[in-house]
Amino acid sequence: MITTCRIGLLQLADSAPVLVARSMGIFSRHGLDVEAVVVPSWANIADGLVWNGLDGALMFPPLAIMTALGQRGRAIGLRPGFPVSRGGNTIVLRGQKVDHTEWTAQADKHRAFENWKNTLGRKPRLGVVHLYSTHYLILSRFLKNLSVCRDTETEIVIMPPARMIQALAAGEIDGFCAGPPWGADAHLKGLAFIVAGSASLAPGHLEKMLVLKEIWKSQNPDGPARMHAALTEAIALCHDPAHAQDITHLLSRPLDANGLGLPEEAVKAVMPGSRAMADTMMFGGQNGQTGAACGWMIEDMQNEGWLPAPMLETLRTLGWYDC
């Protein structure tokens, strides 16, 4: 019997395993008919899960956690999903690297940031893909490390990753933290330079999980196991540099040709095995990681005041938090 599943995802290179499993017939070999639903923003992922538009989604833990807790609509008790990718996020700032050599040369990064800020003539506007994202937490850590006060010295602007390049070019934002390949794309287009990323701020952190709705799991008791088996195969292909070229082509195909419409050169730069960047993507989880892998995120989210004590208890019950 064929099991159908609607998986929501965004135009990001780390969505690769789902696209690869679909286009190479891996899902169908495991008896799954997967529809990859490309949505325009993270709000659509959360709403799709809450109001029955999707059976599952590729998403980062903070949004899955806040959706599970009913902070975006009704609580739907999402549990931790299958780890699909690690790292790959980059922080970029407006300008050319050659004009900002102090970022690499100078030990005093706070000074470097101040000098950069002065070239703007306004409070820096920094784009993040969603409030409840790994990107927001990573950017917050970055600013804190520089002794820059996020809330008073910068302005955080929320917009979907695929909009960042246009917003940077139009002067709406002065930098951003986003998933692959958008940081690489900004750098290759000469719009911005890379200052930090997952690798320097939270090495190897869990980025995307495949979260499945509990109701889908109960309706399809062997669905999760088949899904995991299919994704494990696809992840192995994505992680192998021998397939990087084919996967780059697949991701760069237009949306209406089963691709993701991503900029090809930028995708090439972030594929595993590429030496072009510090923050290349890594696919798959680390052994035995789920709950513990989210530990730093939950800690940071607590510090943001998003998770009062009763919510922590719920998270523990759902398996997000083991301490």
Partner: peptide
Amino acid sequence: ISRADRDALDSVRALSASGLERPVAL
């Protein structure tokens, strides 16, 4: 719902920099 910029409204409550005096929510 297909407007890509509605994520920004989602975050208004938590972001002091949003500049909105009256908070909005879904």
